[in-house]
């Protein structure tokens, strides 16, 4: 299959959709503690952008990061084991939902500090290119991050030093409960343009549209161009965090949610497949996730004696806290 294969894009959005739905079930059953920030509704963005990247390109995700990690190629079983805090997890149970990382597939981590990852990725891509690798990077962030100074500083550094980083703003309309119009003066694209960076607004609900925009940007960047920004307009189908399932927060009108959910990336991409092909992918995804859930639930929990293992790459053993 080629990267433009609609089946491949469909499989990726469907996998993330069902992964998230299965994860929410596991939050409800108590198997996942601490809850998650579901990526439901935004799948087309991670999938479209990652379809435009090579395996050796780098990405960073957000606290709503399962989609980014999976779209870049992480194993769903090890990802799910991470959410369950098991030793077989991507981060050996040390990171959890908000810090899932798989450096082996170029994911420098979901990062739970809003606006922080852009500058980290800029440094990583700069360093790899200095070594002669023609890689590019893509950093995902929400509309809330565009008011973080750290991210605007990263725009400046990347543009100034022409570091090929694709800044991908997932504008889902809300920073937790704060609507964009209550938080963003000017425009998101205008921020990029102020640093001399090309900016495009795309329909984030259509994986193919996102892929085309990302591919064009990645081609320009790989050919020596500087960073670019894509603002992908999207809608978060579910809660900011699963705690909202228990605590109702009144900030989105039901009509608005219904309208938002009516443009579903899984349906949009699924509509491009023949029914039989779509059914085959759905069955394959369910089988993958059945196996992932089974693997994660059967995996051992970490030994509390090693709670601070990996704290220091040097192997330094920290003093413990007991008397």
């Amino acid at each position: 299959m080629t990267p433009t294969d609609p089946v491949r894009l469909y499989r990726a959005v469907r996998l993330i959709r069902r992964f998230e739905e299965r994860a929410i079930e596991l939050v409800r059953s108590g198997a996942i503690v601490g809850g998650i920030h579901p990526y439901l509704g935004q799948e087309g963005i991670a999938v479209g952008v990652c379809a435009a990247l090579r395996a050796d390109d780098l990405v960073t995700g957000t606290h709503r990061g399962h989609g980014h990690v999976l779209a870049k190629g992480a194993d769903p079983a090890r990802m799910l084991a991470e959410l369950l805090g098991r030793v077989t997890g991507l981060n050996r149970g040390r990171g959890g939902s908000m810090h899932a990382a798989d450096l082996g597939v170029g994911v420098l981590g979901a990062n739970a500090i809003v606006g922080a990852a852009g500058s980290i990725l800029t440094g990583a891509v700069w360093a790899r290119r200095r070594r002669g690798d023609d890689i590019v990077g893509a950093t995902f962030f929400g509309d809330g991050a565009v008011n973080e100074g750290m991210l605007l500083e990263a725009f400046n550094l990347a543009a100034l030093w022409r570091v090929p980083v694709l800044f991908v703003c997932e504008n889902n309309g809300y920073a937790t409960t704060m609507p964009v119009e209550g938080a963003v003066a000017g425009t998101i694209g205008g921020r990029a343009e102020a640093f001399g960076m090309p900016a495009a607004v795309v329909d984030g609900q259509d994986p193919e549209t996102v892929r085309l925009a990302a591919s064009a940007a990645v081609d320009r960047m790989r050919a020596g161009g500087g960073p670019e920004l894509i603002e992908a307009r999207t809608y978060r189908f579910d809660a900011h965090h699963t705690f909202e399932h228990a605590v109702r927060l009144d900030y989105r009108a039901p009509e608005e949610v219904a309208r938002g959910r009516s443009r579903d990336p899984v349906e949009i991409q699924g509509g491009r497949l023949a029914d039989a092909d779509r059914a085959a992918v759905d069955a394959e995804v369910e089988a993958t996730l059945d196996a992932a859930v089974e693997f994660a639930l059967a995996s051992p929990e970490p030994d509390p004696a090693g709670a601070l293992e990996y704290l220091y790459a040097s192997g330094l053993v920290a003093r413990m806290g007991g008397g």
């Binding site: 981060n91 149970g93 040390r94 981590g109 601070l308 990996y310």
Partner: peptide, 8 residues
């Protein structure tokens, strides 16, 4: 280093 489970 800790959050990534020793990946970096």
């Amino acid at each position: 280093p800790l959050m990534t489970g020793g990946q970096c």
